[in-house]
Design a binder for these strands. Structure first.
Length: 737
DNA sequence: AGCACGCCGACT
DNA sequence: GTCGGCGTGCTC
């Protein structure tokens, strides 16, 4: 039996993998039932905002259970048809509930039912009179003083409602300050103001011209292009000129960058080139601003949209080109909830929009290299700038027998001395922050461990704290050993903080700068440190992978990689790929045209074949060897993976029991083409007090995997033991073993 | 996931 | 006699 008439199929925010049918609101104009509008519906006893996905002629739901939607929230779709299609594709591919997919796609304010309309973003700024007031003087009005101080320090001198902590109601305080004439109310346009656009495009070398031409040729149809260019080969210039072509044709460009790639420098470079408004979507954006930029992009008012992962869902009125910069970067994969890959969705979107998609990287992912190799992507190679930039010289230092001094071997110290004497700068890379990764009692061997994780606490000497890098737990450094009462507690191993300190002793007066999450926590700190290096005030730079992205240090002639082994030893089959990418990216920070860089890599694995491939043959040869290994081992990109994770507090029993029943169902459902491995406990069994386990599914053919995941995901949803654990399904997981 | 309903222990 | 613990069931 079925109900006739227009039936609304609505994606309701809920973890259920289906759409829900509703009758139209009473008196609704059938002409307004457009897919992509938001609908408020009764759902259980809540009234959430859903998205109308389709209108059907009939419903299978028994008539008595069909309910009527409460209201249509939009007169025109906020989600354009292409994004509905993209959402449906993603919900299917990632086997994620459609309601949650649509939910992540929408700006928060639209999820909450706010009107899809933009004005400027209201803001407040100090008046001249206000600037003359010393906030400290207002002892009787601490909240006024607080606001004055914040306004004085705010970027651009303006605060929007999103900048203020939600806990207190600031409106009354602001009104008082406005009445006193110290503060005025204004409106800030949400788009980066129509820009300066003064830079003239430089002449391109032949490879760059060919790349720009190739992108131009692909205009108006779907064509993936892998732009493979070493650091300094001018990838960004190719993006800029390809964008210019798209803009000239009246089209919009969408640029996706990694999380740390969206720096003020990046934005500034775009702004200097193009005299058009820029929609910049970064994590620091307030919700009003995000909505404003989102809507402006959808109306075609922002010719260029630049943003991180979630920007792949920005509506575009006149799409012309999609660019994914540093496509290998792991931050394009969301690591919780709806675990999508923005890089992969960018390609799907390109196909739906019929536009070219440029994936750029100096160190392309093995997935993209294989796609290029098989002809699915057009590969564009930018060689190093002819004649000028010399390849950095790589040198492996066997430190198995070396007497290390704060993690530095004598030959590395000697090399540093030589480069510093010659007027060069030195960059040291160590992917471990803090002073030492372990604090150990010399008397009894006790080691400081996290109470909630299977991990050791990292000593942060300067802060005088022990911190867990996995759950954030923190405690003061004990004076004596909690186990034996001994007083001889010693730091073991090196972190950036310790290396920085050791270098200060080794090279007094040279100026050492440390760049990691701890030293750059404060706003603007990163820029200050980088400026200091570029101006030559500091000549040794120590840091974590924050150093590997974006910034160039033309004065650096020596790069030292202190500990490459962590990456090579890890059980995760992608560890080698990540390490190679990191080495090449870090090496790329060094040297410029006239000064060849030297890269010294300390290792206890000097014979590691992949390491040798990398330093002798560069990333290309490494990638070929790594691909051959993956093929032989039956791993991605030659197979498809999915990971079912489960975690629960209290013990491993429930996660394992749940995954055990999942494995059983998977084996029952599985075609011959899918291998079910596990369940096994996760690499760090306990994290933040939760016990974690996982089940791996491998299939040589993607279609077989998805044929299993469809029914399996639906079963997981209803599984009884699933209630006792927190579980998730990760298609194309990045961290596997 | 929320948010019910529902059936057994310590409290005004 | 109630307030409230979290076990299972549903959401068009």
């Amino acid at each position: 039996m079925s109900v006739a008439g227009p039936i609304l199929q609505v994606a309701v925010p809920s973890p259920l993998r289906r759409l829900f049918d509703y009758l139209p609101p009473t008196g609704a104009d059938p002409g307004l039932l457009l897919p992509g509008i938001r609908v408020q519906v009764p759902f259980g006893r809540t009234r959430p905002v859903g998205v109308l996905v389709a209108v059907a002629a009939a419903s299978e739901v028994p008539p008595g259970r069909l309910r009527r939607a409460l209201a249509l929230l939009d007169r025109t779709p906020v989600v354009p048809p292409v994004l509905l299609e993209l959402a449906a594709w993603a919900a299917g591919y990632y086997h994620h509930p459609p309601g949650e997919v649509l939910q992540t796609l929408l700006p928060v304010l639209l999820r909450q039912g706010a009107e899809a309309r933009v004005g400027g973003v209201p803001c407040w700024r100090l008046t001249a009179a206000g600037r003359a007031v010393a906030p400290e003087g207002l002892t009787r009005a601490p909240r006024q003083a607080e606001l004055l101080r914040r306004l004085g320090e705010a970027a651009g001198g303006e605060l929007t409602p999103d900048d203020l902590p939600e806990a207190t109601d600031w409106r009354a305080v602001l009104r008082t300050l406005v009445d006193k004439g110290w503060v005025e109310r204004g409106e800030r346009p949400c788009l980066e103001a129509a820009a300066v656009g003064r830079d003239t495009p430089p002449a391109l070398n032949p490879a760059q011209s060919a790349a720009v031409a190739a992108v131009g040729e692909a205009a108006g149809r779907f064509q993936p292009l892998l732009l493979d260019g070493v650091t300094g080969s001018g990838k960004t210039e190719v993006y800029l000129q390809a964008i210019a072509t798209a803009l000239a044709a009246g089209r919009q460009a969408l640029v996706l960058v990694p999380e740390i790639g969206l720096t003020p420098q990046t934005v500034a470079r775009f702004r200097r080139r193009f005299a058009v408004p820029l929609a910049v979507l970064h994590s620091g954006l307030g919700e009003r601003e995000r909505l404003c930029a989102w809507l402006a992009a959808g109306r075609g008012e922002a010719p260029i949209v630049i943003g991180t992962r979630s920007a792949v869902f920005t509506p575009l009125a006149r799409p012309g080109l999609i660019i994914v910069d540093e496509e290998h970067d792991a931050s394009f994969k969301q690591q919780e909830g709806f675990r999508y890959s923005a890089r992969d969705l960018a390609l799907v979107r390109g196909r739906l929009e019929r536009v070219p998609v440029v994936l750029g990287s100096a160190t392309p992912s093995l997935e993209s290299l294989r796609n290029a190799g098989e002809g699915r992507y057009r590969r564009l190679v930018l060689p190093e700038r002819a004649g000028a930039a010399l390849h950095p010289r790589f040198r492996l230092l066997d430190i198995r027998a070396a007497a290390l001094d704060e993690g530095l071997s004598p030959p590395l110290l000697a090399a540093m001395g030589g480069h510093l004497d010659a007027g060069g700068q030195v960059l040291l890379f160590l992917n471990r922050r803090g002073f030492a990764p372990t604090l150990i009692c010399h008397g009894c061997g006790w080691v400081a461990e996290c109470r909630r994780c299977d991990a050791r606490l990292t000593l942060h000497a300067r802060a005088g704290r022990l911190r867990c890098h996995h759950c954030g737990a923190e405690q003061p450094v004990p004076r004596q050993c909690p186990a034996c009462g001994g007083l001889d507690l010693r730091p073991l191993g090196q972190g950036t903080e310790r290396v920085e300190e050791g270098l200060g002793r080794h090279f007094p007066g040279v100026g050492v700068v440390r760049v990691d999450r701890d030293s750059t926590r404060r706003k603007g700190a990163m820029e200050r440190l980088i400026d200091g290096v570029q101006a030559g005030a500091s000549r040794i730079l120590v840091g974590t992978q924050m150093l590997a992205k974006g910034h160039h240090f033309p004065g650096v002639t020596l790069v030292g990689i202190l500990d490459v082994d962590g990456g090579l030893f890890s059980a995760d089959f992608r560890a080698g790929e990540r390490m190679a990418q990191l080495i090449i990216q870090v090496a790329g920070r060094a040297g410029r045209a006239d000064r060849p860089g030297e890269v010294v890599i300390q290792t206890r694995q000097p014979d590691h074949p992949l390491l040798i491939d990398l330093i002798e043959g560069g990333y290309d040869r490494f990638a070929r060897a790594a691909l051959a290994e993956r093929a032989a081992a039956g791993l991605p990109p030659y197979t498809s993976l999915a990971l079912v994770r489960a975690e629960a507090p209290g013990g491993m029993a429930r996660p394992l029991a749940f995954l055990e029943s999942v494995a059983e169902r998977a084996r029952a459902l599985a075609l011959a083409g899918v291998q079910v491995l596990g369940p096994v406990s996760a690499p760090m069994e306990r994290r933040a007090g939760r016990y974690r386990a996982q089940l791996l599914l491998i299939a040589p053919r993607r279609a077989d995997l998805h044929a299993l995941l469809g029914p399996l995901a639906l079963e997981l949803e209803g599984m009884q033991s699933g209630r006792a654990v927190r579980w998730s399904l990760d298609v194309d997981p990045l961290e596997t073993f």
